[in-house]
Simulated scan of single mutants.
Amino acid sequence: MRAWVLLFAVLWYLLGVGLQRSSLFDKKGFVYGKLGHPVKIYVKLHQNSPVLICMDYDRASKETVDPTYLWVGPNEKTLTGNNRISITNTGMLMVKDFLETLSGLYTCTLSYKNIKAETQEESVVKKRYDFMIFVNPFAPGWKGACNNMSVDCEDITNRNILKARDRIEEFFRSQAYIFYHHSNKTLPAMHFVDHSFQVVRMDSCRPGFGKNASLHSNCASCCVVCSPGTFSPDVDVTCQICVSVHTYGARACP
C-alpha cells in the first residue's frame, strides 16, 4: 500500500507598517507629508498607525511662524482628538486600534505666516498633505508572536512549516519501516514513497481584503482592505467590482 500524504499550509506574509521608501519615514517612525503626492501607508488590523506629520521634511527643517493644522478624515469631516484619534498641538496625528472602516484619505492643511524681511508684510501660506492609509488583516497577537524574532517573522514561520514537513515525513518513513520489519506479517506492508509529502502554498485573503499590484505597487503581496467600489465575500485574493459599495472592507455587494 502506498501512502501518499499532502499537507496544505498557509504561509502568512507579515508586514509591519509599510510605506514608500524615502526620507518621508524618519528614524523615530514619524511619517512626513509630500506636496502633490499622497503618501501610502499600510497598518496592521488593531494596531496603531505611525505618527503622521502635517508638513514635509524640508518644511520641518525651517522656522514656521504661527502654524495651524487642520486634519480631515476619510468621511470628509474635521478630525478632533478622541479615544481613537490622537492629534497634538504640533499637528501630529495617530490613529489607535486601526479598523477596516478607518481606511482612506487623511488630509492635513498646514497654515503659517510668511513675513517679508524688507517690508515686514505678512501673508498666510497654506499647504496640503495627503496620506492614504490602508489596513492589513492581522488580528491581535501577531506582533507578540514575532517580537523576539531577530529576522523577519515570515521567514521563521515558513522555516517552521518546512521543519514540520520534514518531521512528519520522517514519521511516516519510520512507521513504514516498523510495519515492514516488526509488525504481524498478516498486516499489509506499508511503503513510504520518497518526495510524496509536499507543502503547498495557499494564497488567500480574508473576506473584505484582496491584493492589487497596480493600486498597491509598493505592497503588491499584501492583503489590503477592499476599496470603495469593490468587495470580497470569501478567501479569494482579489476584490470584485461593485459600484454600489461606498465603504472600505465590504464583504458583499448590496
Rank of each mutant, 00 (worst) to 15 (best):
L110G: 00
K96N: 06
A3R: 04
F134D: 01
F192P: 00
R173K: 14
E122Y: 03
D155V: 14
P140R: 12
C146T: 10
R21T: 09
S227Q: 10
W71G: 00
V224F: 02
N184V: 08
T80V: 13
C205M: 03
Y69F: 15
V39R: 00
Q240R: 15
D203T: 12
T88S: 15
I41K: 00
Q20R: 09
K163L: 13
A176E: 05
S232T: 02
S22E: 14
C253H: 09
E100H: 09
Y57V: 11
I161H: 07
S214V: 14
D234I: 03
P74K: 06
F98R: 02
N136M: 12
K27Q: 14
N75S: 13
Q20M: 07
I133S: 00
D155T: 15
R251D: 04
L215F: 06
I53Y: 01
P67M: 10
V17S: 02
A139N: 11
S61I: 06
F131I: 01
L45G: 07
V200A: 11
V10N: 14
D58T: 13
G18P: 01
F25Y: 14
F134W: 04
L7I: 14
V224R: 00
Y57K: 08
T157D: 07
A9S: 13
L187S: 06
G210E: 04
K27V: 12
H195Q: 15
R2D: 15
A9R: 05
P207N: 05
I168G: 04
H182W: 07
L45F: 12
I178V: 15
R206N: 08
N89E: 14
S23W: 06
R201F: 10
S196Q: 14
Q198C: 12
T80W: 07
T157V: 08
P50L: 03
S183H: 08
R173H: 06
R251G: 02
F131Y: 09
G81Q: 15
L6K: 12
A60F: 07
I53C: 04
A139E: 14
G16E: 09
E63A: 11
K113Y: 02
F98P: 01
K116C: 12
A117P: 03
L187D: 09
M92G: 05
G229L: 02
T101V: 13
G104M: 05
L24V: 14
P140K: 11
K127L: 05
L99Y: 11
C226I: 04
E170D: 13
G210D: 03
T119E: 05
C205Y: 00
C54Q: 00
G36H: 03
K40L: 07
R167W: 12
F98H: 05
F138D: 08
H191Y: 11
Y13R: 14
G16K: 04
D234S: 15
N114M: 09
M190F: 08
P233A: 06
C242S: 04
K126E: 00
K28M: 12
G16S: 13
P207S: 05
V51E: 08
S174F: 10
L19P: 01
S86E: 11
W142K: 08
A139M: 13
R59C: 01
V125H: 03
E121A: 13
V17M: 02
